[in-house]
Design a protein around this nucleic acid. Sequence first.
DNA 1: CTCTTTATAACATCTTGGTGTTATGACTTT
DNA 2: AAAGTCATAACACCAAGATGTTATAAAGAG
Lengths: 209, 209
Amino acid sequence: MDIISVAIVEDNHDIRQAMELLINGSEGYACIGAFNNAENALEKIPQLLPNVVLMDFNLPGMNGIECIARLKGEFPDMQFMMLTVYEDDDKIFMALEAGASGYILKKTSPGELLDAIRDLHEGGSPMSSQIARRVVAYFQKQAKPNPALEALTSREKEILDQLSKGFLYKEIAGNLFISIETVRRHVHNIYEKLHVRSRTDAVNKYFNR
Amino acid sequence: MDIISVAIVEDNHDIRQAMELLINGSEGYACIGAFNNAENALEKIPQLLPNVVLMDFNLPGMNGIECIARLKGEFPDMQFMMLTVYEDDDKIFMALEAGASGYILKKTSPGELLDAIRDLHEGGSPMSSQIARRVVAYFQKQAKPNPALEALTSREKEILDQLSKGFLYKEIAGNLFISIETVRRHVHNIYEKLHVRSRTDAVNKYFNR
DNA sequence: CTCTTTATAACATCTTGGTGTTATGACTTT
DNA sequence: AAAGTCATAACACCAAGATGTTATAAAGAG
């Protein structure tokens, strides 16, 4: 069992020191850096190269999300755990997009925090099942297609797909072995059914935007 | 603590019966239906209206994903837990898109299965942190923008954003208070930087497709 | 067997988009 | 001070897309 090196970015002095003590006092863990703001963390972490970084959301100056995004860009293998008091949707997604792989609440117990750090280091994404539900809900939202698309015939869907890929009318005609005039006709019908007046709007509906 | 009604869809007789016994033998849980294929489940579950459905992936005939999709469409409040032996990426995402909110492996212990059912019923999304990582990775993949977009000036990004929304050149000109010729110029530069020759291709790059 | 839908096709016309070329003032970098 | 970048602008030319109208054969619904 190798030792997991951890860095902490947290502006609250008491919380920071408590976490540092916890980690250094536990076998298999070592806290190799603790910072009270993102700027200091960005300067030192590239030298320390910890396995795992615990990141607070609200920091003075640059916020934790931006700090993760910058470090993750330079060190893709570094693992980031977001520590926050909120379960706010936007913040969860921003953190995940920035490169955080774990997302836990500050009220988490010391033992669970240590487990989460190890879990993260070993390739998991520790998060509460409440937070997981938010993430899952995001998938389900994205998946429902525009009902207007169902009104298209299969040939029209085929044409729309070609349109979405940026083919010229004459290329579509070639690809589907039909005349360019027929392509025009289909496109016209598609526009009518989707209530749009341009290719871009049609494609946007196709991709549900 | 209310009683959670559960239905099981699982083609293996032994596993199905074991789960049924487990659930009926545990306080706070009741198994009100058990089916060996999707077709039977689709017929009976609309009458039974269980709180939670445990769904196997591989079933004879219709698979579990399709079965979830149909039931979820009719009963959006019903909760589905995918039970599988695989941790395959595609299957996870297909299950989530179909409407499953929990995703656990069949090797899960009886106690954990019961906990997961309650968790699901109470609004969580029980899944192992390994599976959560797959889901999180999907977010991070989607989020990394095309580096070519970074080469665009802020004005060019603004123009591209307008293009992506389907505005005509003259509308863009009006929106940004510049001449249509300037719009042309910017569009031309954008196309050069993105190595495309049409609006649709540029928009596709903008949305990372 | 008629009515409707679908896929096919053509033609005219007008609008919009894409390309080439040139230019100017503001600002930044060297 | 010179060189480069950026946002602005104009003009010409041709290609491509959008609109309106009309038509026909095949398949499916009633």
